[in-house]
Design a protein around this nucleic acid. Structure first.
Length: 424
RNA sequence: GUGGCCGUAGCUCAGCCUGGUAGAGCGCCUGGCUGUGGCCCAGGAGGUCGCGGGUUCAAGUCCCGUCGGUCACCCCA
């Protein structure tokens, strides 16, 4: 085995690409029906774009970034998440002067240096969408409704949406103080990570999975008593709009999100079919993000959804997406040099008529050519030999039934077009 | 970054315990059918047994290391 793909990365082979293409097509159609337009950003950004926005304390920055120095001495990082890059592009190109609000989506690879396991890869694909420029809760419901409707349209009926508010820079500090007060009484019982988080980010203690920490966290004060009027009003607005959209959700005060830029709304959706890596999508509001990138104050809300995980869940639920097929309509089988030359011309003519056509390139026996036509899933075999050439005809064989008839060469394309249209 | 399990043909796996000439099914190619696919039959190609070291007369098999996969932890999509 001379070379292998880098750890945690994978090749998507032709036998499975049809599912990816089908999923991506559906996503694009749905996102655009929702009024989102695609934004493509480079796969790398200046490291600070992620380091400053996600937070120095976040796991993403601490241990998951693919960072390198380019030949000019710049520190660049392979995009570990989409939102910061979208906001960087929005600010750079003067998004505030575009028709407001701005609704953007992306389907793009993300890179995180992590230990691989089922549903977790060092390169994975995410579908994400953002609404920039709307401070009110209608945008939260609008953008989070998108992946919900996507999953429903794929047949995932009961997805559980876990919703929370983590406050904003006005009210969250008071809550963090309350958490510090509370957890300080139990420092001996907290794990080492959480003792550190007590100083750096006590919110994160809330979703620590350590048994001891978890037990203590369960009794911790929730943020609900600390949200100020504006945050509470926003939170209630999001819930009201979810209800109006008939999106079921549960309130979960332990959803805190791993990145620092989130404000107010935080959501995560899980599947029981994914083992330990069970998050399907996550997202929230990030009203302070633009300023962290030295841009003007700009509200935003969005999500990121893991495509590998979505495909895995669909597979395990017995709901595979019908793959995009790439079978030729016509396979031209040629016997002999003159027929081969005619086949080259005929295949080209069919292709110019927008009919998928293919032929043998290995100079193989008729039998092998027929076998190949069958394996490719062609609907029609066009057989060209001396007998046909003598009368300027081709034998048109329907592979499903074995029915055959002779067609003049000049009428082959229209005959095949008729078959494609369902007129045999 | 920590721990458990697993690496033999393109794929799924047997052989390992008890060291002694590397196997099966599927897939691929060819032929049976010299101009007709699927089904069937026959043949062929394809492997430094993940890699490196050690023990031994002899290692796919035993030991150590390493890389990769997988599951769990951390955390996330």
């Amino acid at each position: 085995m001379p070379y292998q793909v880098p750890r945690g990365m994978r090749d998507i082979l032709p036998v499975e690409i049809g599912r990816w293409q089908a999923l991506e097509q559906r996503i694009r159609a749905l996102a655009e029906r929702f009024g989102f337009r695609e934004l493509r950003t480079p796969v790398v950004e200046h490291t600070e774009v992620f380091a400053r926005t996600s937070g120095e304390e976040s796991d993403l920055v601490q241990k998951e970034m693919y960072t390198f120095t380019d030949r000019g001495g710049r520190s660049l990082t392979l995009r570990p998440e989409g939102t910061a890059a979208v906001m960087r592009a929005y600010i750079e190109h003067g998004g505030s002067s575009w028709p407001q609000p701005v609704k953007l989506y992306y389907i793009a690879p993300m890179f995180r240096y992590d230990r691989p396991q089922l549903g977790r890869y060092r390169q994975h694909a995410q579908f994400g969408a953002e609404i920039v420029g709307v401070p009110g809760p209608e945008a939260d419901a609008e953008v989070i409704g998108l992946p919900i409707r996507l999953m429903q349209s794929l047949g995932l009926a009961q997805v559980e949406v876990r919703l929370n508010s983590i406050g904003d820079p006005v009210c969250r500090p008071r809550y963090l103080e309350a958490l510090r007060d509370y957890f300080s009484r139990y420092t001996d019982a907290l794990c080492a990570d959480c003792r550190r988080r007590l100083q750096t980010n006590p919110l994160r203690i809330l979703d620590c999975k350590e048994e001891g920490c978890h037990r203590i966290a369960r009794e911790a004060p929730t943020i609900y008593g600390y949200l100020d009027a504006a945050c509470r009003e926003h939170f209630e607005g999001v819930q009201a709009h979810f209800q109006a959209l008939n999106i079921p959700f549960v309130l979960d005060p332990f959803i805190v999100r791993g990145l620092d830029y989130y404000t107010r709304t935080a959501v995560e959706v899980y599947s029981g079919k994914l083992g330990a890596q069970n998050a399907m999508f996550g997202g929230g509001r990030y009203d302070g993000l633009a300023e962290q990138l030295d841009g003007p104050p700009t509200p935003g809300v969005g999500f990121g959804l893991g495509l590998e995980r979505l495909l895995l869940v669909l597979e395990q639920e017995g709901l595979p997406i019908p793959a995009v097929e790439a079978a030729p309509t016509v396979f031209v089988v040629a016997v002999g040099g003159a027929a081969r030359r005619e086949a080259i011309r005929l295949v080209d003519e069919l292709r110019q008529a927008e009919i998928a056509a293919d032929r043998d390139l290995l100079n193989r026996a008729v039998r092998a050519q027929m076998r190949h036509a069958d394996k490719l899933g062609a609907r029609v075999a066009l057989i060209l030999g001396d007998a046909e050439l003598a009368t300027r005809e081709a034998t048109l064989r329907m592979l499903a039934t074995g029915d055959e008839r002779r067609v003049p060469l000049a009428q082959v394309t229209s005959a095949v077009a008729a078959i494609v249209d369902g007129r045999p």
